[in-house]
Design a protein around this nucleic acid. Sequence first.
DNA 1: CCCCAAACAGACAGTTCTGTCCACTGCTAA
DNA 2: TTAGCAGTGGACAGAACTGTCTGTTTGGGG
Lengths: 206, 206
Amino acid sequence: MATTTAARREARQGARERILDTAYDLFSHRGIHAVGVDELVERAGVAKATLYKHFPSKHALVLAFLEQREQLWTHGWVESEARQRAATPAEQLLAIFDLFHEWFQADDFEGCSFINTLLEFRDLDHPVGRASADYLENIRSVVRNLALEADLRDPDAFALAWHILMKGSIVQAAEGDRDAAKRAQMLGRLLIEHHRHEHGTAADAA
Amino acid sequence: MATTTAARREARQGARERILDTAYDLFSHRGIHAVGVDELVERAGVAKATLYKHFPSKHALVLAFLEQREQLWTHGWVESEARQRAATPAEQLLAIFDLFHEWFQADDFEGCSFINTLLEFRDLDHPVGRASADYLENIRSVVRNLALEADLRDPDAFALAWHILMKGSIVQAAEGDRDAAKRAQMLGRLLIEHHRHEHGTAADAA
DNA sequence: CCCCAAACAGACAGTTCTGTCCACTGCTAA
DNA sequence: TTAGCAGTGGACAGAACTGTCTGTTTGGGG
């Protein structure tokens, strides 16, 4: 009953994909340690030995999940949607928070898997923690590129500050604040204004 | 060797305190699930039965830890230090990020236990997740009071936005950005300016 | 037709975790 | 002196976890 014939046929033509897709669903919504290998293989309709043939360990599967998350979330969703939804780079940056606003309304809102996984492992030396931090850095890279295109002053500092807004709003959404994206967007407007070239870098007085 | 006679004498005059202190250290630095009861009782120099006499379960101990965290961190550190370090309420708000800056330089930086625990349990219905979210709300309450004293416009919205900066900078510090507090402070200045009464609430144009 | 590679189910080892229990010890107060 | 109480150390049950292994099934290419 757990694995129907149909599921099996599916499995035949891509056990690895089924495993990775299932891992994506489970890991992103419930975290790493809360999902056991037994549950994972059952949900994927796959034998345990098959999982361990495709992935040498659970950690290796976690790394593959994070890579998938970057493809689907960072690039496939945030970057591409933000670029499509607005005309100018500055508006594209702000559009990130329009996306977030829709995301935060979801009942099964899962948060940022890179933040979640990093805090779950809490060790930048561990391969999984390291990978999480690296993928977060790649998000900043997307932001930095938009900042460059928008001709903003000091794109590196801008991206770091902008990312604080992104992460802060995501964590706040996990707390239950459905309007967190709107607040972050307002702050984003102030930040963009602050990084306009016309804007002086000089002292803001005491 | 694990429990010296001195440790034992200590235990005698306050086993509960020793357990809670040890839980505070271990849970705040390594998270909840990563710390087992066996390790905890050994580090506390206490018998397992003693722990379960004072706390009916590990979850109950986690709740006591979170309460302790609010006392020591939220009120005993953030609130009281911020109020002492500056004269005006607006400067006291900004002083929060001076505190954070010092905090972020620590080699054993542990992050915000309320965020960490909330994301670890990822369930606002679970008592531990609920408590974490509640304690985060209490942090906002501290911010809101300072905003009121600073006579800022819409203290509730201000506190929510300000908290995004606090949490975002903490997560970014966990990634390794030691200057995250400075960036958040700069955003904080913009936010305070935006909430000054003289500042118009009216449309910011399209 | 038949063989082989891939996937199957599921038992198993070994560890780790929470929580319970029991017999023993030492201090303190009546 | 003695009774009570708080704590000790360690064994134990029961569950859950990762990873291994055995033997079986199945479908497609030579």
